[in-house]
């Protein structure tokens, strides 16, 4: 029962976050790059003021999978690295924490670009 509830929350929160993105698209006609940046900055902000952990404990993948989570780990990495490494951490923290995602995105994009061709839209 517990696990069902977790997944329900993940579904509802994740769906809601994405729907807010869609509302932004419909009302302001903004491009997908701006949507991504907007939500990413939201994540950075939530982490910087320290409330992201609470949201993430509650909604789990519902906020970790949307790009909000990516922004939050950038900020979290920077904050953590400053505490352990001091000044150097300002620059190394953010990217180090998200290196996995960025490297994966670049690597898979490169490999699949070599394999596939683009298709005409239907």
């Amino acid at each position: 029962m517990d696990i069902f509830l977790t997944y329900l929350i993940v579904f509802l929160v994740g769906g809601l976050v994405c729907m807010i993105g869609e509302v932004l698209i419909i009302t302001t006609n903004i491009t997908s790059a701006r949507i991504l940046v907007t939500f990413e900055m939201l994540g950075v902000l939530l982490q910087a003021v320290g409330v992201y952990e609470y949201i993430s404990d509650f909604a789990k993948a519902g906020v970790n999978v949307p790009i909000i989570g990516f922004g939050a780990s950038l900020a979290k990495g920077a904050i953590g690295a400053v505490k352990t490494n001091g000044f150097l951490g300002i620059f190394t923290g953010g990217l180090a924490a998200t290196a996995g995602g960025i490297a994966a995105a670049i690597f898979f994009a490169f490999i699949f670009a070599l394999i596939f061709k683009s298709h005409t839209k239907k």
């Binding site: 976050v17 994405c18 729907m19 509302v23 932004l24 698209i25 949507i35 991504l36 995602g101």
Partner: peptide
Amino acid sequence: GGGSIVPITGFS
């Protein structure tokens, strides 16, 4: 739309 843009999959 937003359903496939906002998640990390949209970034990818």
